[in-house]
Design a protein around this nucleic acid. Structure first.
Lengths: 195, 195
DNA sequence: GTAAGTATAAACAGACCAGTCTGTCTGTCA
DNA sequence: TGACAGACAGACTGGTCTGTTTATACTTAC
């Protein structure tokens, strides 16, 4: 029988917290449930995280890193910007369905923790910028290919609105129909539907 | 000195709960704070509402009724569908700003109460349908005026995506820029930008 | 081999929560 | 006048929460 190492414990806590915070919400998940399910004792928990909110921030940072990495990895496997856009929507739809339509962890946190500390808001901001960056890259690739020129800044805004709207509408309705609709809107907007 | 009447008490509780649930969130608002701020004793509270969740449902129903009535009232004061669309976006922007970008009470509740009871989900569904209905009415008025014909079902979906996206993006960013952008997208989509 | 660091287990503190209960006071209506 | 409804006041229960503390075991680096 051996004792868990330091990184083991931290990773187990983060993994468990990610699962529970996302599926049950932050407020509805107690420290005790987290340490029980992670098989870590309470004192060890407080050895790694000063407070529960500390854990929330670490969870958000981790979610951000992981989701951006996963998304970029998926996008790098297709070549044309048209396919990238489709892949982007496919990823969102998959995540939404797999999560039982629980939606975006960051938006959920924003709703759940109104008086969120600056640090929490900051991480949420990072995530939004990261997502936006990906949209801008796709738009700029389309633009380079088809010479959309000065429109491309507006198009990135368009795309952000449509992506966000499709995601939130689908989440509220509990099915991906609106996300698919948003995808076809996005393709129309970028002139990728007729090529 | 006279005792508060039955409807007084209920109304005071609902008003206070609406304010606190919306600004602080459901979980972060305790019964004790509600009755303190409403100046109502606890037994009276439980005379009107069986549980805290009962109060949540009553709050959502009331929010739905009030917001739909207010919206319809505002929309009825302008004549052209073009102006109605503008008014719709203006209302959303005003509400968002006035609330300190706290967003939609229904989406927030959805995020905050993952294991929401059927009744809660039901009221949220009513609200979504109500909003959707208004969009459809505007689209159909535009369609009648300009003969968009068979496209109008798709246009209602488009409009829903854009409205939702603008609202959520603005909420996340903490300013109404994306909502204004969504408005111009909507006008373009319905051909109302050049007339 | 020993000291430092981190793990484990479990009790504990103190705040807060939803909801119950006992009892009193006031107004209305028959 | 008396019965009833619903207001008020507030103590109380049983439970949950975050976070602390104490005591003991294991691992690793010096």
């Amino acid at each position: 029988m051996s004792t868990a190492t330091k990184t083991d414990v931290r990773e187990k806590l983060l993994e468990t917290a990610a699962r529970l915070f996302y599926s049950q919400g932050y407020k509805d998940t107690g420290i005790n449930q987290i340490i029980d399910e992670a098989s870590v004792c309470k004192a060890s928990f407080y050895n790694h995280f000063k407070t529960k909110e500390d854990l929330l921030i670490a969870y958000l940072e981790r979610s951000h890193d992981q989701s951006m990495a996963a998304l970029r990895q998926r996008l790098s496997q297709v070549s044309s910007p048209r396919e990238q856009l489709r892949e982007l929507f496919r990823c969102q739809a998959e995540k939404l369905e797999k999560s039982g339509f629980r939606g975006c962890p960051f938006m959920n946190t924003l709703a759940e923790v109104p008086g969120a500390e600056d640090k929490v808001r900051q991480v949420i901001g990072w995530h939004m910028s990261g997502q936006r960056q990906i949209l801008e890259e796709i738009v700029s690739r389309v633009s380079r290919e088809r010479g959309l020129g000065a429109q491309s800044s507006r198009l990135a805004d368009d795309l952000e609105v449509v992506m966000t709207g499709g995601l939130m509408a689908a989440r509220a309705q509990g099915n991906v129909a609106m996300l698919r609709h948003a995808q076809s809107m996005a393709e129309r907007m970028l002139g990728l539907d007729e090529s």
